[in-house]
Design a protein around this nucleic acid. Structure first.
Lengths: 218, 218
DNA sequence: ACCTGAACACCGTTCAAGT
DNA sequence: ACCTGAACACCGTTCAAGT
């Protein structure tokens, strides 16, 4: 009834993908700081050192986890070649959704250079869509970066603000005495305004990208 | 000739500030991952555990290091009340300069909520300058966040791209076969274009902030 | 009040050994 | 080929003790 030898609990065989997925699940549940080679092994029912047969070390494992996050960005369907702004809008929301689903793991993505296998696939599609809109390579790279700056900054602020308890010092009268502007600003720097501000900034950015020259000068 | 007891090497007395500065220097030199309570103690000539008399733990120490970075943001002089866009521009470049000076420590700042003592002082001045430009509190908070999203995203990309060696996969023919757009994009995603893209995006953002309504609707 | 030193329960990683 | 188990050089933190 089982393909495992008698006396052993059946478990799926180890693989880079299975290990990386287990690590991501642990980070989602317990946080990045709690992840260790030993906890990963424990979750998979093997000794910690078995992981080293599939990854060069912890850094290599975390690279793979970051690549899983990139692969999770849902690439929208391009309705029509001139619908590329709508495509960018959907990509932006899909990217933010990854951060919302994995707030504890997202910094792995935001702090790494975007050059993993899944990132290459993403960039190829991004380049294809913007080429269809008439952009040359330098301007496509610029649009990609401006969007990336915004999305990473917004997602990290989202995570920091939702993750931190009520702004400690803002309840402290001593911090607010002689600080009238801080006192007025405080109520508007909480989590309640994050969604609206994200959409506002994104639409401004998309509108600006839409009017970008398609070819770089020179 | 020394105020230390004979047989002991003179050293400045420990303080929260001295410890945090030593920790920042170690991070700048060896990286965040190498920082430990023991290496901090060693750098200061004390046992590691002496640090616990001034900080509740490592997290508390890293909060203090992040606050040092906030305090390093050079607040420009406001030449005239209507010069506030120039003031924002100078603040943005000062913020980026902190990331450039402390690439290894900067993630501590970007991943934390902006609510340390130095951050409160910064926000008070920010609120004052934008109030002088006619912004109400909700719009000031929105401008602050949009600028923050952009600056953090840009700085982290800067650090990731300058810190990572040549995009590994982009030299690999296998990754580029059947990926014409990636092949075209690659040369424009290196460090050479970072400065120009940062300034371009910042000027676009400042131009948009300049035309923002001063009061939030409702 | 401020610092030391031993101890505890962990880490990442190396290595020799098992199957 | 894949995994185990002991070992090494570290961690953050607690605690009792020194001065």
């Amino acid at each position: 009834m089982t393909n495992a030898p008698a006396g052993r609990v059946a478990r799926p065989p180890l693989s880079r993908d299975a290990i990386a997925r287990a690590a991501l699940a642990l980070i989602d549940r317990d946080g990045l700081a709690q992840l260790s080679m030993r906890t990963v092994g424990r979750a998979l029912g093997v000794e910690a050192m078995a992981v080293y047969h599939h990854f060069a070390g912890k850094a290599d494992l975390l690279d793979a986890v970051a690549d899983l996050l990139v692969a999770e960005i849902e690439l929208p369907h391009l309705e029509a070649p001139d619908h590329w702004i709508g495509w960018l809008r959907a990509v932006a929301h899909a990217y933010r959704a990854v951060a919302t689903r994995h707030p504890q793991a997202f910094p792995l993505l935001a702090l790494r250079r975007f050059n993993s296998p899944a990132a290459f696939a993403f960039l190829e599609r991004f380049g294809e869509v913007l080429a269809g809109a008439g952009f040359d390579a330098p301007m496509t790279a610029r649009a990609f970066r401006l969007l990336g700056f915004y999305l990473n900054g917004a997602a990290l602020a989202d995570i920091a603000i939702r993750g931190a308890p009520a702004p400690a010092g803002l309840d402290d009268p001593a911090a607010l005495a002689d600080r009238p502007h801080l006192r007025a600003l405080g109520p508007h720097l909480g989590p309640a305004t994050l969604d609206a501000t994200f959409v506002f900034g994104l639409e401004e950015l998309l509108a600006r990208i839409a009017t970008l020259p398609r070819a770089s000068p020179g």
